[in-house]
Amino acid sequence: MRRFTSLLFAGGLAFLLFSLVATLDFGDPPMRIGSGILAQAPAQVGTANIVTAVVLAYRGIDTLGELSILFAAATAAGLVLARPGRAVSAPKPGGFVLRVGADLLLPLLVVIGLYIIAHGHLTPGGGFQGGVILAAAFFLPLLASPGREPTHAGLSLVEGLAGGGFILIGLLALWQEGAFLEPLLGTGQLGALLSGGTLPLLYLAVGLKVGAELSALLARLMGEGHDVGD
């Protein structure tokens, strides 16, 4: 009976969605917000990458919310996975090529991650993408030699301080300019590395936070026998 109702519900939903899509007219969306931001952003925010202007300036508080969602997910996973007595069998050590290859890749990944974060206001990329690469850099040695212990204390510190930094920059703007997350420090010259005011700093905080969050999430999933994380 339950299975039948679920099927009915799913079928009805699929029908609803298909019939809605069928009535959509393609190719001529009204660009109310879009064209407004395209016209204003370069002068108002000063980032060559307009997506960054949207992500950090026009919809900056959404980004803060998304960071918080990642943080909540990592924290909730910590609560779920932090159960004592999950014995893990001794992992098999990785081979020579794997270990050395990982060690060689590590600095490259860190540099690329930081580069993508630092140029987020100029080119496609930014904190989210760079942060994921940083997380990969963090996780590579752990995958190559599974016996190694992830450093939870440091992760937790970066996690807290990067998120705190984002909000503190916003609060500084509230105190100085009267609006939370208002870009400070002027716009600078469009396209220069040092432009876009506080936006690159915000992206740095986003990148570190995303990197630390994903690393913490993965490290908790690896969960050793003891209480990992916090």
Binding site: L64, F71, E159, G160, L161, G164, I167, L171, L174
Partner: peptide, 20 residues
């Protein structure tokens, strides 16, 4: 009156920093 954003933002800040 822009302080009204603080009841949203300050708990987020504290939530990030509390584990530290």
């Amino acid at each position: 009156m822009s302080q009204v954003v603080l009841p949203i933002v300050l708990p987020l800040l504290l939530a990030f920093l509390l584990p530290v």
